[in-house]
Amino acid sequence: MIRKSFLSLLGMCLAGTASAEWALNMPRGITELSLETYNLHMMVFWWCVAIGVIVFGVMIVSLVKHRKSKGVEPAKFTHSMTAEVIWTAVPVVILLIMAIPTAETMVKLEDSRDPDLSIVVTGYQWKWHYKYQDSGVEFFSSLARPSVEARRKLSGINPYDVENYLLDVDNPVVVPRGSKVRMLFTSNDVIHSWWVPDLAIKKDAIPGIVNESWFRATETGTYRGQCAELCGKDHGYMPIVVEVVEPDAYQAWVDTRRDDASRVATAQ
């Protein structure tokens, strides 16, 4: 019976990854490094599955064959140096095999030199502030109105009726496709964490400290994420939306933003 529950478990887990659906597995994402991350994840996963099959396999054989009800006499052996050495050495080798590509990816992740564009992201309780260092465009980005209404306790609004419930903002971040974007994170109050799964970026925004990360998006589209560090009561309500657009569209966006900003400035 144990066997059955375990097999169904493994089955669930294999089915989950085989179809590699977004809702079951990690997204492949839209940057070179997000894909590498995904591949590392799958590599380790399959190693674990393989080891699991062997370990659980042996155990299941034993559970089936070596039971008292089958009339077996228990064996007398109590230890084996050879066995201990083997099952210490083999995992070490496997871990080394995992470690090498992982280390390579880690080095790339840290290399935020020579960006085309830098954005300073500041976490607030409970919204994000973005400042484009090169063009000076800056704005706050918070949970979009429809979600704000629906999220209230017993609001009576069905979350399914709200588009992108809890994952939509008033002002998305816009970045050009193909450019290396450096993100600089800090916070105004408590620790937040800026996470967009498709960019494979999750970095803590810490008051008094500036953290760095970078990405180069290869596909246009809208990518969503959320604050990933508990930051108080509305931690669940500070999503992130990144729009990756073609470079000229990006330029146009920057220009209108600048116009807006200067109009506000002259009006004051």
Binding site: V120, L184, T186, G208, I209, V210, E212
Partner: peptide, 11 residues
């Protein structure tokens, strides 16, 4: 270390 911007932007 990796805190060039900590100093530049904040302190």
């Amino acid at each position: 270390s990796n805190n060039f911007f900590t100093n530049l932007l904040l302190w």
